[in-house]
Amino acid sequence: MTMSGIAFPSPRRRKRKQSGWRGLLYIAPAMALVTMFFVLPVLFTVWMSLHKWPLLGTPAWIGLGNYVRMVSDARFMTALGFTAHYTIIVTIAIFAVAFPLAIFVEKQRPLISVYRTIIFLPVVVGLASASLLWVWLANVDSGLFTPLMQRLGLTNGRINLLATFDAAFLTIIAMVVWKIAGFTMIILVTGLQAIPTELTEAARIDGAGRWQRFRYLTLPLMRRTMALALILSVTGSILAFDQFYIMTSGGPQNRMISVVYYIFNQSFVSFNLGYGAALSIALLAILVAISVVQLWLLKVGEDRP
């Protein structure tokens, strides 16, 4: 760099510097909010995680003790395993339902807004309310499913859907798909609608079949939308809590304890707030890692149009 460059900055450069400050000013409110409601709480959680922090009484510094304990905590590992199992199954189920629905409601056809509304309606119900509704639906005596199946002769006698792991798990998956698929569908529809019709037409003229058009045109152009839907779905599933807490209180014989449920139990049932904080930090790290891997796998952000 020349002397003149330092001593006499060019007017253009000064301008850029100025606009940098202005940009910072514009994002300052957002930064303040993020700092106050995300960064500070996370830092405080990190601070707590380094203590033995009972709900009542005084905290004591134990350094990395909580993290060491976590590695050999069998129940935490079980919770991680169950959450992974749940996330994989529920994400596949949501996409398997949402993608066909998106393709169905994307095209203009009679009564399409009615269909869209009906499919989207469960999304606006809170997850806790939806869980309570399904607890009733799945109730063995006064619910809907069990007596209905019995009447139709599908089952011999009354089956308690929430009493065995497989049936309860299936019920919860069905509930979550019913509740979430509409939301994923809306995201996918926006992606589908962003594909220019000229491209599809050109492909059709070139003689591409329906499957080929889907595989080589629609899917690649939907990549970014898919990434968004996938990340939202995976993150949401990893953070699942309400449905297990409300519908099965942790499931038959504790087999449905998700990671967040375990953190809740540690913090507010056993009152180990410090250990709960350490588990939360671990979960945050896992979520960030998974999201980064997903973005990388789907190559989002590499190619700009």
């Binding site: 063995v140 005596d141 009354r158 089956i159 929430l162 009493a163 099965t248 038959p252």
Partner: peptide
């Protein structure tokens, strides 16, 4: 025993 017993919390 009613089947509901198994999931009555």
């Amino acid at each position: 025993v009613p089947a509901g017993s198994a999931s009555d919390n």
